[in-house]
Simulated scan of single mutants.
Amino acid sequence: MYKLRILHPNAMTRLRLQPVMHGMAGILFLFNVIGIYKMDDPNWLIAALFVIMGLASIFFPFIMKNIRKFGEANSLMRMLQAFTLMSGCLYFLSHLQPIVGFTMLLAGLGMAYIGYAEFKILQPSFIEIDTTGITLPGIFSNRRTGWNEMKNVILRNDLLTLDFKNNKILQLEVLDEISPLKTAEMNTFFEKRTQS
């Protein structure tokens, strides 16, 4: 019945953590340079790759504010980080360092997951509200909530507030322009559904 474009519920938390995650990836790359340097026969090409990726990851949060297509640039950086970590995994495994290699594999898989989650969060998100319930966007799938689980739902000042019966409150920023008449109509619908 109603479909509203919203800011993804996890977007603000993820966007606040993004610079920290890029910085931690950069520090991990620079620590790998130390591991390569201490080997008997260091591969300077891999060491240079880790130095470049480490510095790029550390400085990326400082320049990402100036990038016009932020989502695409962030996804590209995450893919490069995951690829470099997987390459490091193969390098350390080939040099008989299984603990470091498998740690790099786990870090690469984690970076790939983070990249996918950030990609999904930065996509347009929609909440669907109908007579049977509310469908909220998620990372992997949408979550359906019935009206019997809701205490109150109200739209005011471009903010949709969902008050659940288990005392959980979720506030979502609505990105669509909604007229005052349409807002009143929606609030009346919400009130009827939560009281029935």
Rank of each mutant, 00 (worst) to 15 (best):
L4I: 13
H8T: 11
P9M: 12
P9I: 08
N10T: 10
T13H: 06
R14K: 06
R16D: 03
Q18C: 15
V20A: 11
A25E: 05
G26A: 06
L28K: 00
I34L: 12
I36L: 03
Y37C: 06
K38E: 13
D40W: 02
N43V: 13
N43L: 10
N43Q: 08
W44T: 07
L49V: 12
F50D: 07
F50A: 04
F50C: 15
V51Q: 02
V51N: 03
M53Q: 04
L55V: 14
S57E: 11
F59G: 13
P61E: 08
G71L: 13
G71N: 14
E72T: 15
S75M: 11
L80H: 03
F83M: 14
M86L: 15
S87F: 15
S87R: 05
G88E: 10
C89R: 07
Y91D: 03
Y91H: 03
Y91E: 00
Y91N: 03
F92T: 01
V100A: 11
M104N: 05
M104V: 00
L106R: 01
A107R: 05
L109N: 01
M111R: 02
G115V: 14
E118T: 15
F119V: 07
I121S: 03
I121C: 02
I121K: 01
L122A: 08
Q123F: 07
Q123E: 12
P124G: 07
F126A: 02
F126D: 05
E128G: 04
T132P: 01
I134Q: 00
I134G: 00
I134F: 02
T135P: 02
R144F: 12
T145E: 02
W147E: 05
W147M: 07
M150D: 07
V153K: 04
I154S: 07
D158P: 01
T161S: 14
L162C: 14
F164E: 08
K168W: 05
K168I: 08
I169G: 03
I169A: 00
Q171N: 12
E173H: 11
E173T: 12
V174R: 00
S179Y: 13
A184Y: 11
A184C: 11
T194Y: 06
